[in-house]
Amino acid sequence: MLDSSLQGGFSNPPVQSAQAFRAALSAMARPGRIETLGGATAPAPTSAAAATLLLTLCDQETPLFLGGAYDTLAMRDWISFHIGAPIVEAGFAQYALGTWADLSQATLPTGISDYPDRSATLIVEMDTLAATGARLTGPGIEVEAHLNLPEIKAFQANRALFPLGLDFYFTAGPHLAGLPRSSIVAEL
């Protein structure tokens, strides 16, 4: 194990994870709204927001899929020390981390009709987050919201599965936005 993987956790886990959860809750409950969170640092290229999200939501009970450039020895070491989540293939994952290019190719669980909650939550790393681009409507949005989604079609197909489907977090640096399966995505 690399010594560096012992670094980067929360200094005050109960409080920092509570604050991070509130940002995550607000992002999921208000799709498109950009929240700020931090406190954790994971090996590159993982953003602060993604690292904080992993530390807040994942533990030994949540199989995790690492996409592409995120599946490194340093990242696996960091996860096994701080989180303990088993690293699995996409089909068994409850959480997934990667870029959209990595994750859009993977086949992740979308839940079953009796238990639609048994589906994966994706943490999609982005270069930037901005309230422009795709138009979002649905639960959590009063009129409409906008978010620079990496594409449109995949999210429309995801919505068509409702109440099954995947839930998304988009992260860039310390910023976070959410897109639950219930959101209706349209081109601007």
Binding site: P13, P14, V15, S17, A18, F21, A24, L25, M28, A29, T56, L57, C58, D59, E61, T62, Y115, P116, D117, S119, T121, P139, G140, P163, D167, P180, R181, S182
Partner: peptide
Amino acid sequence: NFAYLDEQTKRMIRRAILKGVAIPGYQVP
């Protein structure tokens, strides 16, 4: 611990809350 529950329990509850928010009205075990 802060707010009584241990961190593992809070993570489990938080995951359930987020799935509940994503599927409005569905009861998450």
